[in-house]
Design a protein around this nucleic acid. Structure first.
Length: 361
DNA sequence: AAACCGTGGTA
DNA sequence: TTACCAAGGTT
């Protein structure tokens, strides 16, 4: 299994050679992504926010990046957009605060920087939703400035390159990883170098099956057991929960309620029921979804509630804002978490359900 | 430091 | 089928 070539060179001693090997590989074999065709810092920021904790394929396949820029082509347009439209454009990507932060950042650029995107690491870092990684990404990708960055890919590459065996989440490890990123960074060509470093992690120095034979910098790599690295702290234990949701429909409208909490405000979902209030209601759908470390069994109940009729207060857990949403006009325009969007669509499509209410009375 | 925030692919 | 996790940041 260890066909991995032995280390013959030290990247910290032969930094230029390391950079050269990485960049030569990238120039010959680097991929063409939409966000690599622009140096507009706003567009770069959009791509980086979208790609936080999100697979490239997800952003590419559903054209989130292109669609966002078509709808919000510049900072001024984004700054004036409604939250509903922001979230709708982001629907399905998850971590919806990223969309709100993008707009907040646009407003900071307009209000505090006269509409000109800042080009200093500190000012970019100060933008909402922009941490150390994203600041380095914007500085290097948009301005080709020598800013180091460490993302999941880079952390994995470095942990193997330097045979770093401590958990990468610790403060000490983070400090070390960023120091290496700074040590190896070229003064010129940071855009290409950082792109190459990340793409190496994405394509060759992968988590489960590192392809060391095809790696352009294998001669610089210290570890003899790449598959054991990086080490990470154990993830949080999965918590199983059951959610009872209410599917009420009348006159072509369905009853929805807003998500609560600052991170999910503005998203709409089916009203949730306390378990005791779901007893006896017909079950329209059982499904499962995962959210962070939670594993949710979602049970959708039907109820005969006429539009305008007050839902019994005792029927609901609490009382977040709720409203009747027209299926033809409003439903496609609002943003919903994917599990609820799917659940509602599934119930509506299921015309064979044996339940005691009619979809279109 | 640790909890929190989404989603879909993959083994 | 379940568990893991990917171009992280905020609180």
């Amino acid at each position: 299994m260890t066909e991995k070539p032995l280390q013959t060179r030290d990247p910290l001693e032969e930094t230029s050679a390391f950079q050269r090997a990485l960049i030569d590989w990238f120039e010959a074999d680097g991929r063409d992504y939409p966000w690599r065709r622009t140096t507009d810092p706003y567009a770069i920021l959009v791509s980086e926010l979208m790609l936080q904790q999100t697979r490239i394929e997800t952003v590419l396949e559903r054209r989130y990046f292109e669609r966002w820029l078509e709808r919000f082509p510049d900072i001024a347009t984004l700054a004036e957009a409604s939250e509903t439209e922001l979230l709708k454009q982001w629907e399905g990507l998850g971590y919806y605060n990223r969309a709100r932060n993008l707009q907040k950042a646009a407003r900071v650029v307009i209000d505090d920087h006269g509409g000109v995107f800042p080009d200093s690491l500190e000012k970019v870092h100060d933008l909402p939703g922009v941490g150390r990684y994203t600041a380095g990404a914007v500085l290097s990708f948009a301005y080709d400035r020598p800013a180091p960055l460490v993302d999941g890919n880079v952390a994995r590459v470095f942990s193997r390159l330097f045979d770093h065996r401590s958990a990468i989440e610790t403060t000490a490890s983070q400090k070390q990883l960023w120091a290496w990123a700074d040590d190896l960074l070229p003064e010129k060509g940071a855009r290409e170098y950082n792109s190459a470093l990340m793409e190496l992690g994405q394509r060759h120095c992968t988590r489960a099956a590192p392809d060391c034979l095809a790696c352009p910098v294998s001669a610089f790599c210290a570890t003899r057991d790449p598959e054991a690295l990086p080490r990470k702290k154990p993830p949080r234990e999965t918590v199983h929960v059951v959610e009872h949701a209410l599917f009420a429909i009348s006159g072509g409208r369905i009853l929805l309620e807003q998500e609560s909490g600052s991170r999910r405000r503005g998203l709409w979902r089916l009203p949730l029921l306390a378990e005791k209030n779901a007893v006896g209601l017909p079950v329209l759908l059982r499904t499962k979804y995962a959210i962070t470390h939670h594993r949710v069994d979602l049970i959708v109940h039907g109820a005969t509630i006429q539009e305008g009729q007050v839902v019994e207060p005792t029927l609901l857990n609490d009382h977040p804002p709720r409203k009747w949403v027209d299926l033809e006009s409003e439903y496609p325009e609002i943003a919903m978490p994917s599990p609820f969007r799917k659940a509602v669509d599934q119930v509506i499509e299921n015309e064979n359900n044996q339940i005691d209410f009619k979809l279109r009375p």
